[in-house]
Amino acid sequence: MVRLQKATQCALYAVLELARDPGRQISAADIAEKFDLSANHLAKVLQGLTRARLVESVRGVGGGYRFIGNPKRVTLFEVIYLFEDIGSADDRSDGGDTQIAWALSRVTAEIEDIAVSTLKSITLATLLNVMVKRDNGISQAAAD
């Protein structure tokens, strides 16, 4: 099972919430409250996203953060890569130079390759569309 670190989860929630409406500014407090995140933790994550030029902070009354990337171009991998050690070269450290370690590393590399290619293929826009379709489906079911 893929387990993302807390910071990565915070980043994905924040980026996707902001990318839903790139023109909108949302305060860190509002994002933290909506997704039940630690405000301090989220603040650090938003700094990382700002450095990566995915979001920008807007000062003053009504300030907050807004998404400045292209939702059709930014993939989940680009967000996750900022906070996870993923997609790096062979990082086998245990097992020494043994046949068992080599064989196991081939399996873990295969899993990682699949995970990376999956994350690289899903843009924020694609994920947001999935969400919209789900909402539409729920609305349609309610109307029926």
């Binding site: 290619s117 843009t123 694609t126 999935v130």
Partner: peptide, 18 residues
């Protein structure tokens, strides 16, 4: 291909999943 990001992203955008 796993590294065919152009087509993979396209098909994902059309709603295809694993």
């Amino acid at each position: 291909g796993r590294d065919d990001e152009l087509n993979m992203t396209f098909f994902r955008s059309q709603g295809m999943m694993g």
